[in-house]
């Protein structure tokens, strides 16, 4: 895992602070009578790693396919690198790993990368230099001259990733980039993503593996029924609507109304220690409760916020609409 991930191409579109790298406004796709994507609006800044989450059939792949020019939006607008969809200058600087990663299996790994470099308009000298780099990056140098048809699924996905990075893109769309990889392969891809992020590449990551997204992304959007159901920084989402247990000495009854203003009190268990179970809107609320206890000389033995994962957030966001749909 070495070799340069990305040099800015000479024709790079300059990053302007005013404009996001990805901007979708009211993007909508209807297949016959079925709404696949409904009014999708979001924006991703330059240099961000953006996780795109949602249950099966939420419209994630259709959304990416629209951005990649494979599927035409029914309505709405989208701009990539400040240019409208399909713009060739923008496309030169975009990499894409499709969900199904099916490639011409009668090509060898290096022929395949050469073809895609050619399609990106890279001159022969540049391709010759770049192909060994990306092969090293995805750890397939030893298989460069073997046909893709003989590759394992995981290797095919890795050569697909190499293809998405061959042009040193400034913006990369990865649709389930680790679906065929074992834990080691996943860790390698995570390392590649970290490097790309370090080089300022904007990454749009669609994945089922929430722990993966939690580890790699700066910001996420959870989409459901073709719309954004929740979006925000990963840390903020994780801290949202926390369940917190306070282990305290004893709770004076007159403190209860004030406590209720700060957090939602769910349960009070009185014993040698009183355990107050609450729901807090965020971390600030927890701090305020501790302050309140301190002011009233209530001894605090422990504050235990529930450790939430992105999966919990995801379930909270998606499950209610599923239940309603039933």
């Amino acid at each position: 895992m070495s070799g340069s991930v990305s040099q800015l191409p000479a024709s790079a579109i300059s990053a302007t602070s005013s404009e996001p790298a990805i901007e979708l406004r009211g993007l909508r796709k209807v297949f016959r009578n079925q709404v696949a994507v409904d009014n999708l609006t979001l924006s991703v800044d330059y240099g961000e790693v953006f996780g795109f989450l949602g249950p099966n059939g939420a419209g994630k792949t259709t959304s990416i396919k629209m951005l990649m020019g494979l599927v035409y939006p029914t309505s709405g607008q989208a701009r990539l690198l400040g240019r409208k969809l399909g713009d060739r200058v923008a496309r030169r600087q975009i990499g894409y790993l499709p969900e199904l990663f099916r490639f011409h299996e009668w090509l060898t790994g290096s022929e395949f990368l050469d073809l895609h470099g050619r399609l990106y308009g890279m001159p022969a000298a540049e391709r010759r230099k770049r192909i060994p780099d990306v092969l090293t990056l995805v750890d397939l140098t030893a298989y460069a001259h073997k046909k893709i048809g003989t590759y394992s699924k995981g290797m095919q996905q890795r050569i697909g990733l190499a293809q998405a990075l061959i042009n040193s893109p400034r913006l990369v769309f990865l649709d389930e980039p680790t679906s065929a990889l074992d834990p080691l392969g996943r860790r390698d891809v995570r390392a590649i993503l970290a490097r790309l992020r370090g080089e300022g590449v904007t990454i749009f990551l669609n994945s089922h593996l929430l722990s993966e997204v939690e580890l790699s992304s700066d910001r996420v959007a959870i989409i459901d029924h073709g719309r954004v159901a929740a979006t925000g920084r990963v840390d903020d989402l994780l801290a949202r609507d926390l369940r917190v247990e306070f282990r305290i000495g004893s709770l004076p009854a007159e403190l209860l109304p004030e406590l209720g203003k700060l957090v939602q009190v769910e349960q009070i268990a009185v014993g040698p220690r009183t355990v107050v179970t609450t729901r807090a809107a965020g971390e600030e609320a927890i701090a305020a409760v501790v302050d309140l206890f301190a002011r009233h000389n209530v001894r605090v033995y422990g504050v235990m916020p529930e450790r939430r994962s992105l999966e919990d957030v995801f379930v909270d966001v998606v499950a209610p609409t599923r239940e309603a749909g039933r």
């Binding site: 396919k65 990649m68 020019g69 494979l70 060739r88 200058v89 496309r91 030169r92 975009i94 894409y96 790993l97 499709p98 969900e99 199904l100 990663f101 099916r102 490639f103 011409h104 895609h116 399609l119 990106y120 308009g121 697909g160 293809q163």
Partner: peptide
């Protein structure tokens, strides 16, 4: 049907 065009069509062509 095979999906091989998915990687070709988004190229600047």
């Amino acid at each position: 049907e095979a999906g091989t065009l998915d990687a070709i069509v988004p190229k600047p062509i």
